[in-house]
């Protein structure tokens, strides 16, 4: 439904987006993840036809956004980072105007009512846009994006500035829309991606550093599993005992704040060392106070992916090494 092919955009010597490629299948939600200034907004602006790319192609529903901009735009709904509202218009006037310029010709009134109901702004229909709260502005922006029932929705940080309840409602709405629309959304809130998206594109400094589903990303990055252990015994002895277990690659003392003899034990991929750890500690007469696997959160993955980026190209087998670098950096 959306195909982005070797897209680059340069402003003089500065490369904002560098050879970005990805595709989104019909009905999918793609999450666009990256730190501020990574090129998320720029890429979205290219897809929506707001700015042209220096090189590369982008197609929406089969229409090239540069060659057939009107056809592509007719099928795209776009919520920019700042909802594009006219302060002097009421919500109803605004949505009616947007419906007209998006090419709707008949039943505009009904469609506006329907969309206002769908985005929970019907109670503010006759309020001026300038007087809306941040949450309502964001939702009117969302209403504006879906008014012409586009195939593709491009949402730039749709939940920014909403309160927790509104965030949940908005995510719910986005998931509902996903069946009939193909959605690209950007965010820097990581749980949002795992909760709403089927695919994730991680972008940093204009380059795509990872494309995968959130689950795959988590398991891939978790190549070597880490176990947190707290034992009641002499620190040095416990450490050497753990070190000598089969399948253990590395033992490092965990954050001293969590207790005296606390360790993070890295094991080889696919080897479960928990039984050995437990029995070796107990057989020496020490107490095993705590043992739990450390899951890599999306935050860790995100950090490791963007940290490894200079050394390893996306998807290259150097991923685990990059992860170690991050681990060491956190312990230092």
């Amino acid at each position: 439904m959306i195909e982005v092919d070797h897209l680059s955009i340069r402003y003089g010597p500065f490369t904002a987006v560098d050879d970005v490629s990805f595709r989104v299948e019909s009905g999918q939600i793609l999450g666009f993840l990256g730190p501020n200034g990574a090129g998320k907004t720029t890429t979205m602006r290219i897809i929506t036809g707001y700015i042209p790319a220096t090189s590369g192609r982008a197609t929406v529903a089969g229409y090239d956004v540069f060659e057939q901009p009107l056809e592509a735009k007719r099928r795209t709904g776009y919520l920019p980072e700042v909802p594009p509202l006219y302060p002097d218009m009421t919500v109803r006037e605004y949505l009616t105007f947007v419906a007209k310029i998006k090419g709707l010709r008949s039943h505009i009134r009904d469609r506006v009512d329907e969309v206002m109901k769908r985005t929970w702004v019907a109670d503010m229909a006759d309020r001026h846009c300038a007087k809306l709260s941040k949450g309502y502005k964001q939702r009117v922006g969302l209403a504006q994006a879906i008014i012409h029932n586009p195939d593709v929705l491009v949402l730039d940080e749709p939940t920014a500035g909403l309160d927790p309840r509104q965030i949940i409602e908005t995510r719910q709405l986005i998931r509902e829309l996903a069946g009939t629309h193909t959605i690209v959304l950007s965010t820097h809130i990581l749980p949002e991606v795992s909760q709403t998206c089927q695919r994730v594109v991680i972008i940093n400094k204009g380059r795509v550093v990872a494309v995968d589903s959130p689950e795959n990303l988590t398991s891939r990055m978790q190549g070597a599993s880490t176990i947190f252990v707290q034992a009641d015994g002499p620190v040095a002895d416990v450490q050497s005992t753990l070190q000598n277990l089969r399948g253990v690659t590395r033992v490092s003392s965990a954050d001293p704040r969590t207790g005296p003899a606390t360790f993070e034990v890295d094991a080889e991929k696919g080897v479960d060392v928990r039984r050995e750890i437990a029995s070796s500690i107990v057989s020496r007469g020490w107490g095993l106070l705590e043992m739990r696997p450390l899951r890599m959160s999306l935050e860790d993955i995100f950090l490791s992916v963007i940290t490894e980026e200079p050394t390893a190209p996306p998807g290259a087998p150097g991923a685990a090494a990059g992860e170690d670098q991050v681990a060491e950096a956190t312990h230092a």
């Binding site: 707001y50 009107l70 007719r74 700042v82 909802p83 594009p84 947007v98």
Partner: peptide
Amino acid sequence: RSGTMELLLTSPIT
């Protein structure tokens, strides 16, 4: 300034 240019330029109008 208000960002509505983005709305106009991403709408199917020339």
